[in-house]
Amino acid sequence: METLIAQLLNGLSLGSIYALIALGYTMVYGIIQLINFAHGEILMIGAYAGFFAITKLELGFFPALIVAMVVSVVLGIIVERVAYKPLRNSTRLSALITAIGVSLFLQNGGLQVFGTDYVTFPRAVDKVTYKFLGGNATITSHQILILIITVIMMFILQYIVHKTKTGKAMRAVSYDKDAALLMGVNVDSVITVTFAIGSAFAAVAGVLLGMYYQTIHPLMGSMPGLKAFIAAVLGGIGIIPGAMAGGFLLGIIETLVSGYLSSAYRDVVVFGLLIVILVVKPTGLLGKDTHEKV
């Protein structure tokens, strides 16, 4: 029982990080039907920005988080403007190949600039272990922090998407770009805002991953990026609640498989799951066969 609770809490915190990453994939997909393969690298840059903000600028955890978000947002906007916008009217395949190119460029650029070694991510927040259920189960301050930050980010996102004018425009653009143009919406700026939000989420996920694994590396974004992409597909790509659910689910499945079977099977199960979904329900768990996105 104790291990189950421990595994679930662990899965929940890993899953919430996946959910944060998956949200970026799904929002961008919802608005321009592009799988932004560079998303994991935007996360990685965010993690390094957070790292330098803590070690070099000696900032606390939350100010460092803000720095990381700003850096990733700027990078995300640059990537969108330079690499994707010129391809807006070309085939989806060329955009996809470009995204993979941007991803490789940032990975290798990262290896050049940051080196190939793992770097220890500083403990900007004390790790305290709390016992509960009469001492039978434990939770760490890091797990609590990850969960709280994720929940706050999700509330902010729900607010933006459902209660603001920009959010309304995002939903409109994702449904019908031409109709949105006829309303006077500047579709290009809405797309930019979407990338900015997704990148900010990636930065938060990057810093939280640094805290979770206690190390960072220029290639750190690639595996969680892939997992989060699977989470987004699992929940139904383009659907925000789907990305959240998919992320949590994937994190929990992963830790349960590692805990009860063997961590060797972890990725096998996750990728096997992707194949099963693609065969059984290609639109994902929350996906309908309608046109609805974002």
Binding site: K165, K168, A169, R171, A172, S174, Y175, D176, A179, A180, M183, G184, V185, T290, H291, E292, K293, V294
Partner: peptide, 16 residues
């Protein structure tokens, strides 16, 4: 915009 409410559709009309 089928995914938006009737009211939100009207508000989109007044976007500018």
């Amino acid at each position: 915009f089928a995914n938006l409410s009737v009211r939100e559709n009207l508000e989109m009309g007044a976007y500018l």
